[in-house]
Every structure is written in structure tokens, then in C-alpha cells.
Design a protein around this nucleic acid. Structure first.
Length: 271
DNA sequence: AAGTGGACCTGCTAGC
DNA sequence: TGCTAGCAGGTCCACT
């Protein structure tokens, strides 16, 4: 489900309210992608110091370390003063004096992992390979060009890999490539510097626009207060196979790359 | 060392 | 109506 905009919208929707909350209970449901790495009781009495995002991960620093959270494909977080009794897909509750943070994740590809610091333990291992943040000034046509030059595979897959730039998943990678006029099958190392400039801008602008609109709600995304996003109504190609391109009218195509759908306009986007 | 295919898990929908 | 196959917003890992 969640790409960078959805994770950031989620973060913004509860970060202030949970700040300073002291943990009074932890409830674990079914196992997630990885074991949490500590007993729930060891978190009791600790205070939430911040909610930080890195790529599609959230990091909640506590006093003796922190929790690294990922929403996987189907995860979402809610934050409320009081939560209903846990349902079948509610696999983690962090009950604090400011409210309860609940992770709901039917497919359980998400994770909540304890680490002694953001740059230590499991958190360090998971975060170490991540590329630049798209809104970091260091992310530019030049850095994108440098990253893509080392690869021969399709540019869409290079964006998804997240080791050059983080945040664009399957929806926004397709949308950014449309905005930049680049065919998702184009070989990474064949893209000129000017095209990389356009792509870097497209990635940033696409994610920024999605953020403004509260993310994309294709099936079930909601922020921590249950509010849906609107970006899906602005998608130019994602999920629009066979429909006319909003720019030129050609039929949007769907292909499969690395077992994932890619959508593009065969006329507006070139290799 | 980059590229690939499979794995994890559940729910929903289209089609027969 | 009911079953089945296929698909879904992520990413790690083993293998070539």
C-alpha cells in the first residue's frame, strides 16, 4: 500500500499528538515480518521522543532505543485516545498516556522492530542501503544520473530498488516516468543527463503532489485519523490500462516488469 | 556485482 | 451462487 507520501501523511497525522506519551502497555497480535526483538514489557514507562521518517520506514525513538516500523503492502496506522478491541488484523498496539498507536496489517508484510538506536541493530541493517531522500537537495539530476549510469536494467526497476532515491513505489514510479516522458523499459545507463534532470524533478514533484493530496487511496489507505487520500484521481497512467492518455489520447499500456505492473503511454514516453 | 525469481500473507474481484 | 485464478501500494534473500 504505502509509498513515501502515504507514510509521510500517516506520520504527520499523529507525530505531534503522540509526542511525550509514556508507554503504558504493548499488545502484540500475529507475527509480522520480523520479530520485534524485545519483550513488550521492556517498553513500559518509556517516552516517545519523536516520529521520524526515512524512506518508507518510521522511527520512533524511545529512551533506551527505538521502534522501526514499516507498513509493508497492506499496513496502516491509527492513533486514537481509545481503540476498539483488536480485530483479526490488528497486530500491534502501543498504548501511551497520549493515546494508542495501532498497526493494522492484513497481509503482515509490515514490521515493528526494536533497535538500540536508528544506526544500530536491525534498524541499521534495514536502513543502510537506502538511497537519498527525494526532497534532500542532494537528490538531483546529477546524483540520479550517477546512480543510473551503474545499471543496465530498466529504469522503472532502478527507481523501485530504492538505493538511488527512496520513496517512489509502484504507483509513483510509473507516474514520475510519465511526467518525465521516459519509457519504464528504458535502460538506466542510456539516459542522458538532461533526461535524468527531468526525471529527478518528476520524482520530486510527483511525490510532493501526492503528499499535498493526502496520498493515494486505491483500496484502503487512511491516515492515522482515518482520512483517505485523493491522488488516485489524478493518476495519469497508473491503473488506467486501455484508457486514453490524458495528454495525447493514445491508449495507456500495461506491462509487467519483475512481476509488477507498469503503466505508460506509448506515445508520450520514449526509451 | 547486477539482475532474476521466489518468498512472505490475506483479501478482493473478475470470470467461468 | 460458488469456486478459482489472478492481482494488489514492499522488499528481503538466494541464486546465477
Amino acid at each position: 500500500m504505502p509509498e513515501l507520501p502515504e507514510v509521510e501523511v500517516t506520520r504527520l497525522s499523529f507525530a505531534r499528538r503522540i509526542l511525550g506519551g509514556r508507554v503504558t502497555a504493548v499488545r502484540l497480535g500475529k507475527p509480522l515480518r520480523w520479530p520485534m526483538g524485545c519483550a513488550g514489557e521492556s517498553l513500559l514507562g518509556q517516552t516517545v521522543g519523536a516520529v521520524i521518517r526515512r524512506g518508507k520506514y518510521l522511527w520512533l525513538p524511545l529512551e533506551g532505543g527505538g521502534l522501526l516500523m514499516h507498513l509493508g503492502m497492506s499496513g496502516s496506522l491509527r492513533f486514537a485516545d481509545h481503540v476498539a478491541p483488536p480485530g483479526a488484523h490488528d497486530h500491534f498496539d502501543l498504548v501511551t498516556t497520549r493515546g494508542t498507536l495501532r498497526l493494522t496489517d492484513p497481509r503482515r508484510f509490515g514490521a515493528v522492530v526494536w533497535s538500540p538506536a536508528i544506526d544500530a541493530g536491525t534498524a541499521a541493517r534495514l536502513l543502510s542501503g537506502l538511497g537519498l531522500e527525494p526532497f534532500d537537495p542532494a537528490f538531483s539530476g546529477a546524483s540520479l544520473h550517477a546512480g543510473l549510469r551503474r545499471r543496465r536494467g530498466a529504469v522503472k526497476l532502478a527507481l523501485l530498488a530504492g538505493d538511488i532515491v527512496v520513496g517512489a513505489g509502484n504507483i509513483y514510479a510509473s507516474e514520475a516516468l510519465f511526467a518525465a516522458g521516459i519509457d519504464p523499459r528504458a535502460r538506466s545507463n542510456t539516459l542522458s543527463r538532461p533526461r535524468c534532470e527531468r526525471l529527478a524533478i518528476a520524482v520530486r514533484d510527483t511525490l510532493a503532489r501526492a503528499l499535498e493530496l493526502g496520498g493515494s487511496t486505491l483500496r484502503d489507505f487512511r491516515d492515522a485519523h482515518g482520512v483517505a487520500g485523493d491522488f488516485q484521481n489524478e493518476a495519469r497512467v497508473y491503473g488506467r490500462e486501455g484508457e486514453p492518455c490524458r495528454v495525447c489520447g493514445a491508449r495507456v499500456r500495461r506491462i509487467v516488469q519483475a512481476q509488477r505492473a507498469s503503466y505508460f503511454c506509448p506515445r508520450c514516453q520514449r526509451r
